[in-house]
């Protein structure tokens, strides 16, 4: 199992993402100018401030050469996980529904939160259980996920709301307490919280590993 972790200028969580992937498999960085993913089995788009977050977070990264390869990989059913800025990039690239807006409190939030798994029909939650609570940190300025009411209802009906902040813990004002969503096939998942920062009890929680273990399970060929 080989993970590719995409690195843009301004990414800053790619090292932790690689270390998290290495808990369950092999991982390598994929530079944003690479047009070929080199045969990886899963892609992680990490957090940070790609291209300085100019214009809107993720708006410019979506035009990076590597994103064509990520599109093709996702279209072929490959698992893709976008974390924080990676989630913003995937929304801007229309690979995930909705948009990420400035936090309602206008402050950068950096704290541990609990999220609940709302769907297990995705590459990043295949090994989780519905309602399972995960303790993971958030650290973002523009994490208020938004979708018009009709779209949100549609996503909920289709089981594409993947994570919700636990009651009372929504750090940014996202609609429906949504913390993460999936594409229609469930192979592309994005979330604002950082599972890659929660893979060792030394850091307060190892709950984030559940997502990487799920990716491993989703990418692995079905047992004969």
């Amino acid at each position: 199992m080989r993970f590719g972790v995409v690195q843009f200028p301004g990414s800053c969580d790619e090292r932790d993402a690689v270390l998290a992937c290495e808990r369950v498999g092999e991982a390598r960085l994929v530079w944003h100018e690479e047009a070929d993913l080199g045969g990886v089995d899963a892609v992680v788009i990490p957090g940070g401030f790609s291209y300085g977050d100019y214009l809107r977070a993720g708006a410019i990264a979506r035009f990076a050469p590597v994103m064509d390869a990520v599109h093709d990989f996702a279209r072929a059913g490959g698992p893709v996980l976008g974390i924080c800025n990676g989630f913003q990039v995937l929304c801007e690239a229309a690979m995930l529904p909705g948009a990420l807006l400035a936090n309602d409190g206008l402050r950068f939030v950096c704290r541990q939160v609990e999220i609940e798994v709302a769907s297990t029909a995705t590459a990043a939650t295949a090994g989780c259980t519905i309602g399972e609570r995960l303790s993971v940190p958030v650290k973002h300025m523009s994490g208020r996920w938004f979708a018009p009411p009709g779209l949100l209802a549609e996503l909920e009906a289709e089981g594409r709301v993947v994570f919700r902040y636990a009651p009372g813990q929504n750090p940014n004002g996202s609609v429906g307490d949504v913390a993460g969503v999936a594409n229609e096939h469930g192979n592309v998942v994005g979330l604002m919280p950082h599972p890659e920062h929660a893979v060792d009890p030394l850091c307060g929680s190892a709950d984030g590993l559940r997502l990487f273990e799920s990716l491993l399970r989703s990418a692995a060929p079905a047992p004969a």
Partner: peptide
């Protein structure tokens, strides 16, 4: 495509 996000 770039300057605005028409969803929001």
């Amino acid at each position: 495509k770039l300057l605005a996000n028409p969803l929001v």
